[in-house]
């Protein structure tokens, strides 16, 4: 029994790691631009399609494929910012949200028309996945890799945001974007960096998603991003720590509900998950760790 609990807790941890990784990508853009980038899912999908293309033209070296996929996601994220989000940068939040939704749907349909509506096998990341036995507990190497990668990503982000000039500027921009420009720091550079980082996180997520699913399809990233969105809302939108916390919380909730609910209530799983989330939001309407809103000036 105790083994079973440990086993399911580890499962919950790796669910959470994936949500956290994707939620971080949403949060970093939101914290600076106030944009909920639903197209983040398609940035992940591009990583997947890039792996598909590389496999098709006979790239075998996994390192090359991994770097290629991450690179593709970064380029895609920066490209989307340039062509789709920059024109609406100073528009209101709804415009940004609708733009992101539109971009997401257009890309999904492009994948569908240009590649295929069906899943296409991409098995080149299977090598990341092998079973590991710890006593009576079984985990997959992928669960470890994904959790470790998420933790490393968090560490990298914290260091970047605390230590580097651009990172500090990004934190400042999340509070008062115009003031950052008034320091002579290029807005475009700060925002492009935020998108590049979100693309990097998306690329890493793409690798783990492909390693597990072994296939790409047009909705590869859309569904996980919906989950990550929920994680961000629970954790406090715009807060990076909140995104991570929300991701792990959602992972624990989902696995918990799956395990605890009797099968006849199975269809209610999501309802229960959202009920818990609703309770959290009643308690903390802005999410658990909502970022500070006031400018902090003492007048």
């Amino acid at each position: 029994m105790i083994d079973y609990v440990v086993q399911q807790s580890l499962n919950a941890l790796s669910f959470g790691a994936e949500y956290a990784l994707i939620a971080l990508g949403l949060a970093i853009v939101f914290s600076i631009m106030g944009l909920v980038n639903f197209a983040h899912g398609e940035v992940i999908a591009i990583g997947g399609y890039c792996m598909m293309v590389m496999a098709a033209i006979a790239f075998r070296n996994p390192i090359v494929i991994i770097i290629g996929a991450i690179f593709a996601s970064v380029i895609m994220a920066v490209f989307l910012e340039r062509i789709a989000f920059r024109p609406v940068r100073y528009a209101d939040a709804t415009t940004g949200l609708l733009t992101a939704f539109g971009v997401s749907l257009i890309l999904q349909n492009l994948f569908l028309l240009l590649v295929s509506p069906r899943p296409i096998a991409v098995t080149s990341m299977y090598f990341l996945d092998w079973p590991i036995k710890l006593g009576s507990i079984r985990i997959s190497s992928l669960q470890i890799f994904e959790t470790v990668a998420t933790l490393l990503a968090i560490l990298f982000l914290v260091l970047f945001l605390k230590r580097s000039f651009l990172g500090i500027a990004m934190r400042a921009a999340s509070l008062d974007f115009e003031m950052v420009r008034l320091m002579g720091i290029r807005a475009n550079r700060v925002i492009a960096t935020a998108f590049a980082i979100s693309g990097l996180l998306a690329g890493i997520a793409a690798i783990f998603i492909i390693a597990r699913r072994g296939a790409v399809d047009p909705t590869l990233g859309f569904n996980p991003v919906l989950k990550a969105f929920v994680a961000c809302v629970v954790g406090g939108f715009g807060s990076l720590t909140g995104a991570v916390l929300g991701g792990f919380l959602l992972g624990a909730l989902e696995v918990g509900m799956l395990v605890i609910l009797p099968q006849s209530y199975g269809g209610m799983k999501d309802a229960f998950v959202f009920a818990v989330i609703a309770i959290i939001l009643v308690w903390r309407p802005e999410g658990i760790l909502s970022p500070q809103k006031e400018k902090g000036d003492k007048i």
Binding site: Q8, N11, A12, S14, R213, V255, V259, Q263, G266, G267
Partner: peptide, 21 residues
Amino acid sequence: SKMNFSIPTSDWSPQIAEMKK
């Protein structure tokens, strides 16, 4: 046994842990 899942699901480890049990 009957077990639940969602569509889509990309990680079945909770259900598999139940099967093992």
